[in-house]
């Protein structure tokens, strides 16, 4: 037995691993269709009229935040400051745009700037000082919200003062799809591309998959991690502007406590909470799914207060399922190995 070919088990497990990933996206679509179908069957109004449009409008903010968070989670980090940053971006943007009589483009520029600033601070603290991202972003979650409360001084922006172009963005559709969802989709496709086709994206996967090995092959972990947090911040900043369009009402508690919904979306969308694997499109589908379930619960007459609990159940189910699948495939690999060893010693 000097065969340089050790065939079967490797290729089949390979196929299985690939299928698992593709299967994740496919099964998300399936669950999504199922959830929509069941809800629509119980309550036909869920899809009727502007139902679908409302669903997409409702998914835009959480969707773009999921797109922002995914590269961070893939790199084995977390960003809990995103919901606070969204609120800060929404409020501060309006506080500058409204008095100056500015419109859409200035709003996006300001929102993006605020998001990038918070993201850069997060990234520098995490990558530069090696403080765990959970600690850093838990801190900036409170700090950013605190700044917002101080800055707003109990103020608020109502539809009558918000620039009409922003309100229109939240209402209008192109090809029946809301403009704010187009924006989310655009960023999602861009992020999906760079996570797949550029060294920055691939390095983030490598860092999350095996950090010491990433160091050994000379990946610039500091720079890549910083970029991931800047991206997450940028998306949170843009999300703030989308938030203005969606709600046409902003005060200091805008989007408060929503960070865990985004984490849930990302994890439900198949991004490994321990880093290394997952896709942007999966995370976006995850965001859609939790919005469908939230809307669906209301449509079938469940008290909306249950929504948080349902998100929690989704989060644990998604992680639990991954864990079970991983354990099962590991056991399988172990069995294959033992069979091979046994075969070996038998030959000897």
């Amino acid at each position: 037995m000097s065969g340089p070919t050790v065939p079967a088990p490797t290729t089949t497990t390979a196929g299985r691993a690939r299928k698992l990933i593709n299967g994740r996206i496919a099964s998300l679509f399936l669950i999504l269709a199922l959830a929509i179908g069941i809800t629509a069957a119980v309550n036909p109004r869920f899809l009727g009229g502007s139902g679908l449009t409302d669903l997409l409008i409702g998914s835009a903010v959480i969707g773009i935040l999921a797109v922002g968070l995914t590269p961070v989670v893939i790199a084995r980090h977390i960003d809990l400051s995103i919901a606070s940053t969204t609120g800060l971006s929404a409020y501060v943007t309006l506080s500058i745009v409204v008095p100056n009589g500015w419109g859409l483009w200035q709003s996006f520029a300001i929102g993006a700037g605020i998001g990038l600033l918070v993201g850069t601070v997060n990234g520098l603290l995490v990558a530069g000082l090696n403080i765990p991202s959970l600690v850093v972003t838990l801190g900036t979650l409170s700090i950013v919200r605190g700044i917002l409360y101080f800055y707003s001084d109990a103020g608020r922006f109502t539809p009558d003062v918000i620039p009409p172009s922003l309100i229109a963005m939240g209402l209008d559709t192109i090809l029946d799809i809301p403009i704010i969802f187009w924006i989310t989709l655009g960023f999602a496709l861009f992020a999906a591309w760079w996570m797949r086709y550029t060294p920055v994206g691939r390095d983030l996967y490598a860092i999350g998959s095996n950090p010491p090995a990433a160091q050994l092959v000379g990946i610039n972990i500091f720079q890549r991690t910083l970029l991931a947090f800047m991206w997450s911040g940028l998306m949170a900043g843009i999300a703030g502007v989308l938030y203005i369009g969606q709600f046409a009402f902003v005060d200091a508690s805008a989007f408060i406590n929503q960070e865990l919904a985004v984490v849930t979306a990302v994890v439900v969308g198949g991004v490994n909470i321990f880093g290394g694997s997952g896709t942007i499109i999966g995370a976006l589908l995850g965001a859609l799914l939790i919005r469908v379930i939230a809307g669906g619960l209301v449509a079938v007459g469940v008290d909306p207060f249950w929504q948080q609990a349902v998100n929690g159940v989704l989060l644990i189910t998604a992680i639990g399922l991954d864990r079970i699948l991983a354990l099962r495939s590991q056991a399988k690999i172990q069995r294959i190995r033992e069979d091979r060893v046994e075969e070996q010693s038998w030959r000897e």
């Binding site: 050790v6 490797t10 290729t11 390979a14 196929g15």
Partner: peptide
């Protein structure tokens, strides 16, 4: 190297 491995497997 004379080994049969699928480059695309994880």
């Amino acid at each position: 190297l004379g080994v049969d491995l699928n480059p695309e497997r994880l």
